[in-house]
Design a binder for these strands. Structure first.
Length: 359
DNA sequence: TCATATT
């Protein structure tokens, strides 16, 4: 009876992995009706991803009935996105989604789960737990709380430097009422073998940020597309690092050249402030975003792709752009894909420059 | 003493 899907190669409860975003719950059975299995929720999408891009990604699985991207009303932060492939069956969908995750090849994994039917009963079911024994694993935390209901996600926060548990964590239950029962049953109680009682309370709601925090984010925003992208980026980098540690993916510095240059306003060819912009020339008229994801994804973190189309015909004008997070991965993609034969066309791939490219 | 999973 679980909605949770595994979003990583292993169910990781080791010391360095205790900060995984996931619970270790059974990955497949949603416990919902067959109908609800066409309804997916996708978490940890890149903040830069657009609805069209997501649609393009998942469109290769099956026909998408609807695709909705939800942002925090106040901060503009991408919260999650919903995709509904109409014809796909349960296992087949899962199999293909794994493939999609690999193709996308982000620094972190997308979390793709069956969406629970939306209702008031699943809201505000998130608990904050403190005073946990430092030795307690995520699995043990779940075992402690699972007697009160179905756990959607769990997490133990760890020290960024040592990787050791900070003794605090989160438990998200399926239902609000389950969370309430867990508070009643566990707040102030000592877990088995623990010397100190734990505190269990409802977690702060992210939409209830202080005005000061929001103003601070707005102030630091260099970008007009959504408020607070700089703060978001910093946040994302931290998340990336957490997840990279958790999954053993290559780790990159908290402040990359990407962040440095955008802060300093330095202009480097191909570098647009949110990543390394790559120019792809000689695409076919019917080229779409998914081909760019598929070509560049294997080289590393791709945060954005765009095919430039003619306004009237909606056909590709022969070129597009790809944004990649890390310079070395972008350089490798360019070195590998420049001159690549796509169908009957030979592609030209380079860092984007300011000059106009002509055929 | 707080990260993100609800439309």
């Amino acid at each position: 009876m679980e909605t949770q899907l595994s979003n990583g190669p292993t169910c990781n409860n080791t010391a360095h992995g205790s900060n995984t975003i996931n619970s270790c719950s059974s990955p497949i059975d949603s416990g919902n009706t067959e109908d609800s299995k066409t309804n997916l929720i996708v978490n940890y999408l890149p903040q830069s991803m657009t609805q069209e891009e997501l649609k393009s990604l998942f469109g290769s699985i099956g026909e998408i009935e609807s695709c909705k991207l939800v942002r925090d009303k106040i901060t503009g932060m991408l919260v999650f996105e919903l995709v509904i492939p109409r014809y796909e069956k349960y296992l087949n969908t899962l199999k293909n989604l794994k493939g999609i995750t690999l193709k996308l090849k982000l620094q972190y994994y997308l979390l793709v789960s069956y969406a629970r039917p939306s209702s008031a009963s699943i809201r505000d079911a998130n608990l904050y737990v403190s005073g946990l024994p430092k030795t307690m694993t995520q699995k043990e935390l779940e075992q402690l709380f699972s007697q009160y209901g179905r756990i959607i996600t769990s997490r133990i926060l760890v020290d960024q430097v040592t990787g050791m548990s900070r003794g605090v964590g989160f438990i998200r239950f399926d239902k609000r009422i389950e969370a309430e029962e867990a508070i009643k049953g566990l707040n102030g109680q000592k877990p088995p073998a623990a010397t100190e009682p734990i505190t269990v309370k409802f977690a702060n709601n992210p939409s209830q940020k202080t005005n000061q925090a929001i103003l601070s984010q707005l102030y630091h925003s260099p970008n007009r597309r959504y408020p607070a992208p700089l703060a978001q980026q910093a946040q994302r980098f931290r998340l990336d690092n957490l997840l990279n540690m958790a999954y053993g993916v290559k780790r990159f510095p908290p402040m990359t050249i990407d962040g440095m240059t955008s802060l300093a306003g330095i202009n480097i060819p191909g570098h647009a402030g949110t990543g390394w912009c790559i120019f792809v020339y000689n695409l076919a008229p019917d080229a779409d975003e998914s081909i760019l994801w598929q070509m560049f994804g294997p080289f590393g973190a791709v945060t954005n792709v765009k095919v430039i189309r003619d306004f009237n015909t909606n056909k590709c004008k022969g070129f597009g752009f790809v944004t990649m997070t890390n310079y070395d991965e972008a350089a490798m993609a360019i070195a590998s894909l420049n001159g690549y034969r796509l169908g009957d066309r030979v592609l030209q791939v380079s860092f984007k420059t300011n000059k106009t490219h002509k055929a």
